[in-house]
């Protein structure tokens, strides 16, 4: 009842603030429940944490069937290896060789993996499996724990590998 009253009060505020006054102001806890955003600076990362050793167990149970032993690839993409291959005729784009931010791995695993049961992993499990993939790529050391503070501080090998759009790149108006 108290919650309903709160919503009613804020919706009157919203009605007065916009040009059309349509829609209502969401309660802060509603936003929090829906807000899955994780930014590269770590904004949005939840409490909790995990290590590569813990992550190996999560990986073997939840990920290995598609991504193969030690994330070397199976039915689905490899997540390790490929460093140094990007300028070659056969580039291997993996978390280790291509992804510019470690936060992306946490975010994607939390929202989209495992493929058939997205959202089933706890925050601790997601941190742990993230740590495992980073450790397999030699990006973090064995004992390093990934959490809201350490994960955004991880420097990915291809962090500076991206350039802005430089099109049009053909014809008389091409940017070179």
């Amino acid at each position: 009842m108290r919650k309903a009253l709160l919503v009613l009060t804020v919706s009157i505020v919203a009605a007065q603030s916009g040009k059309y006054g349509v829609g209502r102001a969401p309660a802060p806890e509603e936003i929090k429940r829906l807000d899955l955003t994780v930014l590269p600076d770590g904004t949005g990362l939840p409490a909790g944490g995990g290590s590569a050793a813990e992550g190996k167990l999560v990986y073997e149970r939840r990920c290995q069937r598609c991504h193969g032993a030690e994330a070397k690839g199976g039915d689905e993409v490899a997540m390790v290896g490929g460093q140094g291959t990007l300028p070659t005729p056969k580039p291997l784009k993996t978390v280790g060789s291509y992804w510019p931010h470690a936060t992306t791995l946490f975010d994607y695993v939390r929202r989209a993996m495992p493929f058939k049961e997205p959202g089933i992993l706890t925050a601790d499990q997601v941190y742990a499996v993230t740590a495992y993939i980073l450790q397999l790529n030699g990006i973090i050391k064995d004992g390093e724990r990934m959490d809201a503070k350490s994960l955004p501080a991880v420097r990915m090998p291809n962090r500076d590998g991206f350039i802005p759009d430089s099109r049009p790149d053909t014809g008389p108006k091409a940017k070179r």
């Binding site: 580039p91 590998g161 350039i163 759009d165």
Partner: peptide, 13 residues
């Protein structure tokens, strides 16, 4: 990914 190993990002149009 371009020939030099750099990749274009935010190529929207």
């Amino acid at each position: 990914l371009l020939g030099d190993g750099k990749a274009r990002i935010f190529t929207f149009e």
